[in-house]
């Protein structure tokens, strides 16, 4: 655990409320985490758990009816409170985001080189030709073969994996200190996915970049994360190092998710399942959101929010059954 000063991003009590005419709902409900340089945190959750909304809230990318409260301190300053003009400056230079679908982030009418150079010129004000040289270096940095030629390619002329690399290069253009990755490998083939995961891991180590990686895939989380935060119905239900979360499985949801993950070793047996489906955020149960699906539910779970049980810095479980290790150890 690094001293507090080494944290480059600290998110405190991040809450996103969607206020619409039909009523309001909390998509993210009091999320806390912090990251040191070079650390990779994975937010693991199913569809509708609020994991992507968390990232978008940090980037200020949510629509007008989203009401964001809490803090996200990047190198000490709260980016949630920044006026739009300043936020635009922070976006790209200090924090960048990559998406599941690179075609959404890349402009189809400009070449890859032009787009990366343009981003560099805008943020750093250097000359076009110097920026182009940097763009070439970036493409080489993300291991795009024959980078000089690729610089002149349009996004549609590239394969899916190459586009994803080009988007990463674009995100790296102004050397951000934090990279937000929203399911960047979900649409990729398995042989390409592992390439991108290895690349992100390597970039984070070498550039000292903190990465918040969002995925629904436990295998991907195991490959890339230093730490994992398991998200359910807008809340982190368990956080910890990748080993802790995958071995200890202190929260029943984590345990159920890992047990129901299919692998060949389970051939011929029925799979363990979590009964039911994730709740609708518009109609959350009063107590613990997981209570209706939980196998070891107790009376107290249904009445109030379960306590947050701390297991040391950055490690917690939101469950009545969790008992701090200290009591036994």
């Amino acid at each position: 655990m690094l001293p507090e000063t080494d944290k480059i991003i600290e998110v405190e009590d991040l809450t996103v409320e969607f206020r619409k005419r039909e009523g309001s709902l909390f998509a993210v409900n009091g999320v806390n985490f912090s990251l040191a340089r070079g650390e990779v945190l994975t937010i693991l959750g199913e569809s509708g758990s609020g994991k992507s909304v968390t990232l978008k809230a940090m980037m200020g990318l949510l629509p007008g009816y989203a009401h964001v409260t809490g803090q996200a301190r990047l190198n000490g300053k709260n980016i949630l409170a920044l006026p739009p003009a300043e936020l635009t400056k922070v976006r790209g230079s200090e924090v960048s985001m990559i998406f599941q679908e690179p075609m959404a982030a890349l402009d189809p009418v400009y070449t890859i080189g032009e787009q990366i150079a343009e981003a560099i010129v805008q943020h750093e004000g250097i000359s076009k030709s110097a920026a182009m040289k940097r763009a070439l270096e970036l493409l080489e940095r993300v291991s795009i073969p024959s980078a000089a030629r690729r610089l002149k390619n349009y996004p549609h002329e590239m394969s899916g994996g190459m586009r994803q690399r080009a988007m990463i290069a674009l995100a790296l253009a102004c050397s951000p200190t934090v990279l937000l990755a929203d399911e960047p490998t979900t649409a990729l083939d398995v042989t390409v996915q592992i390439q991108i995961l290895l690349l992100l891991r390597q970039l984070s180590e070498e550039l000292g970049m903190a990465v918040v990686f969002v995925t629904h895939d436990i295998g991907v989380a195991a490959e890339i994360s230093d730490r994992i935060a398991v998200m359910y119905a807008g809340r982190f239900v368990e956080t910890g190092t990748v080993r802790e979360v995958m071995r200890e499985r202190r929260h029943p949801y984590t345990a159920g998710l890992l047990a129901s993950t299919v692998h060949g070793g389970l051939r011929g047996q029925d799979l363990e399942t979590i009964p039911g489906a994730p709740p609708s955020l518009a109609a959350l149960p009063p107590g613990c959101a997981f209570a209706p699906r939980c196998r070891s539910v107790q009376e107290t779970c249904r009445s109030g929010q379960p306590p947050v049980v701390d297991f040391g810095p950055g490690t917690m479980v939101r469950c009545v059954r969790a008992v701090p290790q200290m009591a036994f150890a």
Binding site: V190, T191, Q193, I194, L197, L198, D217, I218, G219, V220, A222, E223, S225, V242, R243, M246, T261, H263
Partner: peptide, 12 residues
């Protein structure tokens, strides 16, 4: 071999 391993100690 490209399959994610599900084991943080045996990463690719």
């Amino acid at each position: 071999a490209s399959k994610p391993t599900l084991d943080p100690d045996r990463r690719t």
